[in-house]
Design a protein around this nucleic acid. Structure first.
Lengths: 206, 206
DNA sequence: CGACAACAAGAACAGTTGTTCATGTCGGCG
DNA sequence: CGCCGACATGAACAACTGTTCTTGTTGTCG
């Protein structure tokens, strides 16, 4: 288990072709953008007919919403699990949270890109729902940082805003990372974990 | 000269309506995305006719290319000037470069958003040209970081990749900053300059 | 069996897209 | 004056858009 394959984001749902459609939509929205990709593109990618898409999702916009919800669920799950398995101190927790986040970005690069670039095309209701869900993940980082700032581990004067800077940099990995590049998944995670701790003016290994 | 007004990105060119069109295109691409905005939207925003746009730009894609070129020129100009006016040591130069970059992002928020989100819709030639131009700006930061790493001011073990992390975070400011929010332009610049120096494990004021 | 819900496909519709064309006005230069 | 390039416009086109409708095939539960 050294090199992860680019697994599909959505594995299975109750319905026959829902996962196939969702993954095809992710692919289409990722490569051509939400407005650049047509429902016909999605149908072709999913190997089904145009009209059949509407048996699963009532509109293109709702399809995007579903894709983004799956991506967000997976991210949040990974981060929460990483924090649970980390030690009690803020630096360890932050380190593992960042590593998990970087892992998600690398494993689901396209999903990360779509999540950051295409959210604004959601209908207002779906967008606010998704944003608040995303804020919940960000709050996990903020909570850790607050704790670390309170007990003196992080000495940055800007603890309140640092999470945004860290998460921005991590998410942006999706826009330049190449699987065949010089940096491995593990190296990247290590690198950004150190960036985060340093930015917070916290304790650094060695 | 305390509060800057949101100045137009393009001030004037030789041709009668070129600047108006470019700014209207920036606005349209910014609010609805490249594929979401139509040439009719741009024409309406510029107060001219649809067909007249083609007297200035041969295609929608070239129009986007022109907008992005103007944005990039302005950014590069600001950063270079800031570095020139800074001291000789790497920490001072980096600090001023970051402050200038943050200033650009705040002053031209929409342009920054378009530059990061819509580059991929350029035709291959225009995209590679623009990317290499953007890399030149990034190289300014990398050069400073290299120097600081060489003379011991920056102690990060990841000097070679740190510029990308810093610039990602700075560019992302455009996606959340609000003029009427809690952070002023100057505070933001100060904050991100310190983030950058801390991330590089360099010397911090106080 | 019969009924019903889930799933599937093709044809069609009304609106929008980027782009082109024909035509016209205008101001300056020879 | 006459010419020409820059600027401007409305109409038109062929292609594509998201969505709906109609029809048909399943498989499962009573």
């Amino acid at each position: 288990m050294n090199a992860r394959s680019p697994e599909a984001l959505v594995r299975d749902t109750g319905r026959r072709n829902e996962a196939v459609i969702l993954n095809a939509a992710l692919e289409a929205f990722g490569t051509r953008g939400f407005n650049g990709a047509s429902m016909r593109d999605v149908a072709k990618g999913a190997g089904t007919s145009l009209s059949n898409l509407y048996n699963y999702f009532p509109s293109k916009s709702k399809l995007l919403a579903a894709v983004l919800r799956h991506a967000n669920d997976e991210l949040q799950h990974r981060v929460l699990r990483a924090v649970e398995e980390a030690g009690d101190d803020a630096p360890s927790q932050l380190r593992e949270a960042v590593r998990a986040h970087v892992g998600f970005v690398v494993d689901h690069q396209v999903a990360t890109l779509v999540a950051t670039n295409e959210v604004r095309y959601l209908e207002p209701d779906d967008r606010t729902a998704l944003v608040s869900h995303r804020d919940a993940t960000q709050a996990t980082f903020e909570r850790i940082i607050d704790q670390g700032a309170a007990d003196g581990a992080f000495r940055t004067p800007y603890a309140r805003d640092a999470a945004r800077a860290i998460l921005s940099a991590v998410a942006a990995i999706a826009s330049w990372y190449r699987r065949d590049g010089a940096l491995s998944r593990g190296q990247l995670a290590e690198q950004y974990a150190r960036y985060a701790l340093a930015l917070l003016e916290g304790p650094l290994p060695r």
